[in-house]
Design a protein around this nucleic acid. Structure first.
Length: 414
RNA sequence: AGGCAGGUGGCCGAGUGGUCGAAGGCGCACGACUGGAACUCGUGUAGGGUGAAUAGCCCUCGAGGGUUCGAAUCCCUUCCUGCCUGCCA
């Protein structure tokens, strides 16, 4: 959630920043009004409560002293009745404010390139030359069929469309990648965690998936549980409603989880192959950082993900997302896009974001700064998306006969 | 899943209708004592909202609702923990 006090006190500036992310200025006006309304309603209610509290104390005192309370009782009763509409007003003001506030995206950082959509993203650098083929490289689904690696039909039979089954060496490669990623992250100082794959609504609100993006989530029937769309949710919320000692920052965490997404807005996109599935494996990095140090941590995370791709010999490029392509919670995001020779395209394989204090405010994650409690910065990034790495290996390491080499660094995991 | 017992500050633990955001202890921080330390003594030590405020005021004793002038304390719902039974990897 954005800082409402900041919005109130620096409305023009805040409004300009959020317009870059597509938020209407009218919406922000309304938010500001609701915030003022809540403050006013609370001020009145609290004054009445203070009156009520002091009269109640008097009441007790009179009783002890054996005084007559009839007159006091009628005063206190009258005040209580007068409080009812104030209470109602405060309650409504709060509900209206939070309904709107929770749906407002994060401010982009000042230096994020302004743009409308992914066309306006900025390529920062390329790492490794794509190899040249003396034959026409195949797309991963064709290779999957030749090698018997991916059973799309049976995935659909077992579940529904956009589910697949990995078989034989593909399944082993998937497992090898997970281990390779976790080991690498651990060497960089990330603690490895194995977390629940279902989280409750409060956690999903903490990281920003709820309430706005409920349609993208698989919900468990009759339970306050959702299948996680990314390990960012459980890892970041590890410290939900906690206050960390400053010396523990940054907290670096990594974990493997499957991720579950309805892909509600993606009908018709990437229907062929395994690029976009309802379930996929991912190894995630999450950092809880001191607000003054989160930029350093961010750079480290980008570097780490890029190094992993390099170690695998996968050509990729580093792309800074423009304001229009930034996710809901992100202040800044860098995507790593891996080269897919079969598709003849760079495709997203990792996304690393600094959410600043946006998630921290929602999830109430703070640290002790001297005597005061301050919000931390939270960061997350894939290192890496496993299924897409598998695809990238297939396409980049294919031979003319359709067979696939195993990258050197993975051999000890197979 | 059923039965019983519980959920109070960083931790332990008292509190069964008012003077309780809460005794006492532990831990922690600072100060005194010391050559330095331990011990001892003193002081301080929950979170959030509003406020310029380290002032007042409001909210929070798992969560939500209710009774009452007044709720940590009574009632309802719900979540969680422990033990027993059932089930299961």
């Amino acid at each position: 959630m954005i800082d409402l006090k900041y919005l109130q006190n620096n409305f023009e500036e805040a409004s300009a920043r959020l317009q870059k992310k597509g938020v209407e200025s009218e919406t922000l006006e309304r938010l500001k009004t609701l915030f003022a309304e809540l403050k006013d309603a609370n001020a009145q209610l609290e004054a009445a409560k203070a009156e009520q509290n002091s009269m109640s104390k008097l009441f007790g005192q009179y009783k002890r002293e054996g005084k007559d309370v009839t007159e006091l009782k009628s005063k206190v009763d009258a005040n209580k009745e007068a409080m009812v509409p104030l209470q109602e007003r405060a309650r409504e003001a709060e509900a209206a404010l939070y309904e709107l506030a929770l749906a407002i995206p994060n401010f982009p950082d000042e230096d994020v390139p302004v743009g409308a959509d992914e066309e306006d993203n900025v390529e920062l650098r390329r790492v490794l030359e794509p190899r040249s083929f003396d034959f026409e490289p195949l797309e991963h689904w064709a290779l999957a069929e030749k090698n018997g690696w991916i059973d799309f039909e049976r995935g659909v039979k077992l579940a529904k469309s956009r589910f697949a089954v990995l078989r034989g060496d593909a399944a082993r490669l998937e497992r090898a990648l997970i281990n390779f990623f976790l080991d690498t992250n651990r060497q960089k100082g990330f603690e490895e965690l194995c977390v629940p794959f279902m989280n409750n609504a409060q956690m999903l609100q903490g990281t920003g998936q709820l309430p706005k993006f409920e349609d993208d989530l698989f919900k468990i029937e009759d339970e306050d549980l959702y299948l996680i769309p990314t390990a960012e949710v459980p890892l970041t919320n590890m410290y939900h409603d906690e206050i960390l000692p400053e010396k523990e920052l940054p907290v670096l965490m990594t974990g493997y989880t499957p991720c579950f997404r309805k892909e509600a807005g993606s009908a018709g996109r990437d229907t062929r192959g395994m690029i976009r599935q309802h379930q996929f494996d991912k190894v995630e990095m999450v950092a809880i950082a001191h607000p003054d140090k989160s930029d350093e941590v961010f750079e480290m995370m980008v570097e780490n993900a890029s190094d992993i791709l390099t170690a695998l010999g996968l050509p990729h490029r580093v792309v800074e997302l423009c304001t229009g392509d930034l996710g809901f919670s992100a202040a800044r995001t860098i995507d790593l896009e891996v080269w897919l020779p079969g598709q003849n395209k760079y495709r997203e394989i990792s996304s690393i974001s600094n959410t600043r204090d946006f998630q921290a405010r929602r999830a109430k994650i703070r640290f002790k700064d001297g005597k005061k409690n301050r919000l931390v910065h939270t960061l997350n990034g894939s290192a890496l998306a496993v299924g897409r790495t598998l695809i990238a290996i297939m396409e980049n390491y294919q031979n003319a006969d359709g067979s696939i080499e195993i990258p050197e660094v993975l051999k000890r995991y197979m």
